[in-house]
């Protein structure tokens, strides 16, 4: 059994590492300038010169996918960071102290779940103004706070009254110390899989928003926006949509497998 469980983790890590490597590479080096147009090289199919072919402007799609995945991964990472840090802080404090603040925040949380995540992000982005990378990060970050808050709240509330926390308190440890040193590490088994799920949701949400044209807009390439470009030329350059779409799928798939592996490891550890 054990072998199989780590199998997800290993497969996920391999996929993710390869993609991460390519993405990081894309920051420093791409075979072609992703925005350089070339009248001679329009709509070329995949070849050794252009691994994923070229689009209607003769831009090299492989280079664009690398750059686009860089944008998408960057936004998703920032988003998860905001969501996880702020959400964990809110969840930790409310879960640890309980009381009225806890009640109110959780009621608001309940109401917020009525909004589909993209809808909420769209609301925030329409408030902040569409089209900027920073605003997309803020919008999605805000959207992901409640789910992290709910999760960590439950985790913190459940270990609040454990003996070792009690004894730490008796030994005079301050609340901050208890929360950070004694409790946080013990919620990691819940938090880590949640981060992978959050990352995936962020990738998909960013791609959706950019696809709709209210996320990242040109000249920055993002996988979602590239897909919406690719749709228009699917008949003549299907490789554009396919390579971009597969990049998104593999990104999410790889991290999803890691999450699955972590979850199973966590379950194993309990027994």
């Amino acid at each position: 059994m054990k072998k199989k469980m780590n199998g997800y983790l290993i497969a996920g890590l391999i996929i993710t590492c390869i993609l991460a490597g390519l993405t990081i590479l894309g920051y420093f080096y791409t075979p072609y300038d992703p925005t350089a147009m070339s009248g001679a090289a329009k709509f070329q199919g995949p070849s050794m010169a252009h691994l994923f072919g070229t689009d209607n402007f003769g831009r090299d799609i492989f280079s664009r996918v690398l750059k686009g995945s860089g944008t998408t991964v960057f936004i998703a990472s920032c988003t998860v960071l905001i969501g996880a840090v702020a959400g964990t802080a809110v969840g930790a404090v409310t879960g640890y102290f309980g009381g009225i603040v806890d009640d109110i925040l959780m009621r608001m949380n309940d109401a917020l779940t009525a909004f589909p995540s993209i809808l909420l992000a769209l609301v925030v982005i329409s408030i902040l103004g569409p089209g900027s990378e920073l605003n997309v990060i803020i919008a999605l970050g805000i959207v992901f706070i409640p789910s992290f808050a709910r999760l960590t709240r439950t985790a913190f509330a459940s270990i609040r009254d454990r003996n070792y926390i009690e004894s730490a308190r008796l030994m005079g440890a301050g609340s901050a110390r208890i929360l950070l040193i004694h409790m946080l590490p013990n919620t990691l088994s819940v938090l880590l899989p949640a981060i992978t799920i959050g990352f995936n949701n962020a990738v998909l949400a960013e791609a959706s928003m950019s696809f709709l044209g209210i996320g990242v807009t040109p000249p920055d390439a993002s996988l979602g926006y590239m897909l919406s470009e690719a749709q228009g030329m699917f008949a003549r350059a299907p490789w554009y949509a396919l390579s971009t779409g597969l990049m998104i799928i593999l990104l999410v798939f790889g991290v999803g497998l890691i999450g699955e592996g972590l979850q199973r490891l966590g379950k194993e550890a309990k027994y």
Binding site: N200, S208, A241, I249, V252, G256
Partner: peptide, 8 residues
């Protein structure tokens, strides 16, 4: 399949 975005 969970990774397949509907727009793709």
């Amino acid at each position: 399949f969970m990774a397949v975005p509907p727009f793709f």
